[in-house]
Amino acid sequence: MRGVVWYIERDFLRWVRGRVAVFSALVMPAAWLIFVGLALPIRFTDNYLDFITPGILVMTMLSAGLSGGTLLMFDKILGFLNKFLALPSPREDILFGKILFVSLRGLIQATIILVIAVLIGASVYSPLQYGLTYLILFLFGVLLSAFATTLALYLEDHDSFAAVNTMISMPLFFTSSALMPYSVMPGWLRVIAMANPLSYAIDAIRAVNAGALPVAQIASLMILGVVVTAVSVQVFRRVTV
């Protein structure tokens, strides 16, 4: 398992030295927070920023998690994956390295979004509440990055991965409870939103902010994460080029 640390270090150095990418990933969620969170004339709540912040945090993790697939895709295209697969260290280390790096990077990005939210007027919560929020975001990141990394292992080229990426990320976001509560949704959307894993994470953070402990949602995220990761480990162990 020591290999995981070295794979994370490699990706981290590459990320930090990429400079532009460090900030570009933050533009989208920050724009949503400011232009939608502050500007949308909403009647169901008097602090829409507080309502939308959990949704934007999860959105940040969503794009961070899916980018794990892009990372693996480039490792594959550029020949790194072949060299890693020819190493004696367990192949699932490559997967765990990507999952942990991408989830931790997502948490760093989410922290910056959280700071921006507070600066423009979102409520401040207790350390325990933030701790639980981070736990939820981390579980969600693991789920998404395990899925995206394994998908990238199977897809042929970067174009098809980018296509799948756009195909799932926007619909997932809009059919979640990120932008409006279930009570104001049309009936058909409510059904989809309640099944959407994004909503589990968003609802869980909202519940934490309201002072509750969302055991059911955290448990579902955990179970989903474990199942997807277990499948991914099997896929990585058996992979051939």
């Binding site: 150095l13 590459r14 020949g79 790194f80 072949n82 060299k83």
Partner: peptide
Amino acid sequence: PQDMAVDIKL
């Protein structure tokens, strides 16, 4: 492999 896979950012 023949691809010359070394990390240019490292």
